[in-house]
Design a protein around this nucleic acid. Structure first.
Lengths: 113, 113
DNA sequence: ATCTTAGATTCGAATATCATAATATACTAT
DNA sequence: ATAGTATATTATGATATTCGAATCTAAGAT
């Protein structure tokens, strides 16, 4: 049982473990958006976004409602939003390492201007 | 940049996205443990646990200190613990779906003697 | 009925993750 | 030096994720 619980949590984290899906959830944290609006804001392939939405639906992280032609998505639980907020905090606390991890540490020389 | 940030978060979630690694972090949240103690408590293969520890190290989620023969691990940032606590909350709020997701919903008929 | 628009699903190839087995390193003791 | 213990690393095969391309479905609109 202990282990089943951990498998469940791991599954949720797995769903969160993609930049596009994080972007989707962050966009939705401001309020409901249609699939089309998400695609536009993300600037990505329709099929790809739809696939990521399918993952989020499967893990119950988002709810969707159909209105005529369109499908509107919302966050299912504010806890997910809290988790993402904590991650922002974490990011700021570890900004330096994060940059190194991402291999994007700017050299002091030039570039700005 | 926005995207780099999301890649960073996704990487952290990826590190959390495995039951064994969650177990490790939860064990460490009670305090420092040696690799050997972790292996024993988890009841898993030495090499496997060591690999998961390597992932957690690479993503900077744990710190390690060497003492003679042994290596002791600790959580690096209490925020991670907070995230796991939030996930516990989330789990309780969604217990029912979780069970279904895990395919472990017991049928009312029989089984229990 | 046909066309169009909004989304979802399926397929294939490239890549990543995982567990096990085998090997390597580093320290301690003799 | 040799042996033993604690831990890490590497190689390999199995499985899972990811993306783009193509296809499919449902709802309007003509």
């Amino acid at each position: 049982m202990q282990d089943a619980l951990r498998r469940f949590k791991a599954d949720i984290f797995q769903a969160l473990a993609h930049p596009t899906r994080i972007a989707i959830l962050e966009l939705l944290s401001a309020g409901e958006l249609s699939a089309g609006e998400l695609i536009e804001k993300l600037g990505m392939e329709q099929a790809n976004v739809s696939q990521h939405l399918a993952v989020l639906r499967a893990k119950q992280l988002v709810a969707n409602r159909k209105a005529g032609n369109q499908v509107f998505y919302t966050l299912r639980d504010p806890i997910i939003d809290k988790v993402l907020r904590l991650m922002r905090q974490y990011f700021h606390a570890h900004l330096k390492e994060a940059m190194e991890m991402l291999g994007e540490m700017e050299k002091p020389t030039g570039k700005t201007r």
